[in-house]
Amino acid sequence: MAAISLENLTKRYGDVSANDGITLAVEEGEIFGYLGPNGAGKTTTIRQLLGLIKPTDGTATVLGADIRNRKALTEVKADLGYLPDDLGFDERLTGNQALDYFARMRGDEQREELLELFHPPLEKKIETYSAGNRRMLGIVQAFMHDPELVIMDEPTAGLDPLKQDRLHQFLAEETASGTTIFFSSHILSEVQRVCDRVGIIREGQLVALEDIEKLLDRSGKHVWLHLREDVIESEFVTEEMINVEITDNAIQFTYTGDYNSLLSHLTSYEIDDIEISNPQLDDIFKHYYSEEYTEDS
């Protein structure tokens, strides 16, 4: 059984479709990356899965419960963890009091283990917390009852790189023991590092759903070069280079071919400076989905 299954899930606000017929399934024990730029509709999907907002059309199941069935959905929430992007704690409580509060509703079997990894100042009131401490408290409350499924919305926002790594490692351990993670993010590199599979959402529509490896193969590398002399386009550019932009002796492009052939191609030029990086998510959208997207619509 899929931990989460979306069938034609649609949410419209007037003429705007925040989610437009999304269909996908998240299998038990996988880390599913839900990727898209800000405002693409990721949070809308999550808030529908939690029953906070109702779909205009279509439906979804969470741990077997149809989201339109309020009673069933409430019951499965005992096995659900949620880390919202905007963490709304009761500011007047201390970290400990907030955790006690949630523990009364759904238990806290692994609270102590989590607090060894993520340790916000539990004795202090939450109103004094930094963004990082808030996020850590959020992570602890999301996982402390050892849930079967955890839905995370931009989970590393505010965390320092060390804690981000710790979270990524922790997620890997959790899924190894059978927990399913629904990981929403706008950061491609993060999703790449953590997730098994990825669904990409743009303007409310699911534009890709595939293994992370395949996505990376398709997305190529972003290359930026500063040559000693002006770039001669007809000579330099090969068909593996797309989205080419040339200004005098600077050139940038997305490279979709074999890396070895790129490197041997570059040896025949005098290079002053070079940068090879993962492409921005926006570039991927632009170059791998815009045509399909336009044709489909």
Binding site: L50, L52, R70, K71, E75, V76, K77, Y82
Partner: peptide, 18 residues
């Protein structure tokens, strides 16, 4: 107040009905 300060999102992620 709970809705405006987003506390309701977190609260309703618990097994508790509206």
């Amino acid at each position: 107040s709970d809705i405006e300060h987003r506390r309701m999102d977190l609260l309703l992620s618990n097994p508790v009905s509206r």
